[in-house]
Design a protein around this nucleic acid. Structure first.
Length: 429
RNA sequence: GGAGAGGUGGCCGAGCGGUCGAAGGCGGCGGUUUGCUAAACCGUUAUACGGGGAUAACUCGUAUCGAGGGUUCGAAUCCCUUCCUCUCCGCCA
């Protein structure tokens, strides 16, 4: 949600931000609505002030037992203008909100220009791609060979874009999540583990910017709940409608949850395998900071997500998204892409965004500064730390052996009962 | 699911048709006292929007007592709708 005063003060900066989003300038028409809105408010308030004064006089007169008919007639005469003025002011105010609340956040100046993913810029590459002496398989081939990744059963029971994981793979997914949580909640990680609700109300979905524009991307229950598309929704809303003390910032939350996305089928992309599912597990990171801290926190958060991949020995690259490819709430986003030899491609495994005060304004999340008076909006950040299902895929594809067994990365072994490798599939008789 | 109770400022808690933005307390801030701390005492302490002003200090106005609507000259107070919380009973992982 944008601050109309910011647009009033610097319409050129606003339009420049929209341009980075490949949107046409809007400041002129928004300010026109704002102008009419403010005029209507002034008019309406003047009438209200008059009524208030008269009503007070009526009260005083009646208190003294005097006749107040003349005064009451005066108020009566005001009635029409009053009602009309109020309605007009309200209508214009709502129109402005409706226009503003669907606009995306303004990218920072250092965000690259571009209309889609081709405009993204790689900023670093870590780890080296393994040289396979054989043709590496993708995760579907590996998982189905052992029967531990079962798409056929999932299709019978839930339809497309679901999967059953069994035995070692089920356990490894759990191991990965636990490894991530342990690192994030360690002293150097600094995050507080949270186990949030997975069903949320409209206001929570609105607060992070999912509503009103992206309703069709979420599952909805028939009694009015949204299934969370990411734990970002409940975690960020932990501070909605609250005022935190500056000394308590930053707040850092992490959660391991399933995520539910209904849009996953619509794109027609990644129809094969576990890459894009209606339900997937993810460890999420959320930070609440002061405006001054948010940029450093953004770097830090991205670093914490990268640390997971480093410890798992998975090669990855980090890119900064261009204006056209960023999520609407974000001012700047780093994507981390893991190398998948089975696909011969880097694939997104984390997305870390600094949302500035965009979400804070929508959910009314403020802090009380140590210096000065009043309150200010917090900055909110979120990132995957990491997508657990995709991490599982990455482990399978990067650590596979020619016989179909999979070496387990050292970091995960303590979580797998010391197991060193997932067994190769047994040959069919 | 059944039966009740309630939602007031950063927090607790009064008020139940008329100068109520709202008593009192706590907390916060400023000060006095004090060797320091504590205690005591005095003062102060909401937010949003709009107008004026230098996009200042400040000032004027309007709104805000869960949300929305209604009654009334006037609503925190009355009525309706809705959301939420709590208690008891039932049911259930």
């Amino acid at each position: 949600m944008h601050d109309i005063r910011f647009i009033r003060e610097d319409p050129a900066a606003f339009d420049a931000g929209l341009k980075k989003r490949n949107l046409a300038p809007l400041s002129a028409e928004l300010l026109e609505i704002d102008k009419r809105r403010r005029a209507a408010i002034s008019e309406s308030e003047a009438a209200q002030a008059k009524r208030k004064a008269l009503s007070r006089q009526i009260g005083i007169a009646k208190g003294k037992g005097e006749n107040a008919d003349a005064l009451m007639a005066e108020v009566e005469a005001l009635e029409a203008t009053l009602k009309q003025g109020e309605a007009e002011a309200k209508r214009l105010d709502e129109e402005l909100t409706r226009r503003l609340e669907v606009l995306p956040n303004l990218p920072f100046d250092d965000v690259p220009d571009g209309v889609d993913e081709t405009g993204n810029v790689e900023i670093r590459r870590v780890g080296s791609q393994r040289n396979f002496p054989f043709q590496p398989k993708d995760h579907v081939a590996l998982g189905e060979a052992t029967g531990e990744m079962d798409f056929a059963s999932a299709a019978r029971i839930s339809g497309a874009r679901f999967v059953f994981l069994k035995k070692h793979l089920a356990r490894m997914e759990r191991a990965i999540a636990q490894f991530m949580l342990d690192l994030h909640t360690s002293e150097e990680g600094g995050y507080t583990e949270v186990n949030p609700p997975l069903l949320v109300r409209d206001n929570a979905a609105y607060g992070v910017g999912q509503l009103p524009k992206f309703a069709e991307d979420m599952f909805h229950t028939d009694n009015g709940f949204w299934l969370v598309p990411t734990a970002e929704v409940p975690l960020t809303n932990l501070v909605n409608d609250t005022i935190v003390e500056e000394k308590d910032l930053p707040l850092r939350f992490t959660a391991f949850t399933p995520c539910f996305r209904s849009e996953a089928g619509a794109a027609g992309k990644d129809t094969r395998g576990m890459i894009r599912q209606h339900q997937f597990p993810k460890v999420e990171l959320v930070s609440i900071t002061t405006p001054e801290q948010s940029d450093a926190e953004h770097q830090r958060m991205t670093g914490r997500a990268e640390e997971i991949l480093k410890r798992l020995g998975l090669p990855f690259r980090t890119i900064v998204l261009c204006g056209g490819d960023m999520g609407p709430a974000s001012r700047k986003t780093f994507d981390i892409e893991v190398w998948l030899p089975g696909q011969n491609a880097y694939r997104e495994i984390s997305s870390c965004s600094n949302c500035g005060e965009y979400q804070a304004r929508r959910m009314n999340a403020r802090f009380r500064p140590k210096e000065g008076k009043g309150t200010r909006f917090v900055h909110t950040l979120n990132g995957s730390g990491l997508a657990v299902g995709r991490t599982l895929i990455a482990v399978l594809e990067n650590y596979q052996n020619e016989d179909g067994s999979v070496t387990i990365p050292e970091a995960l072994r303590p979580y797998m009962g010391g197991l060193a490798a997932l067994p190769a599939p047994t040959k069919r008789k």
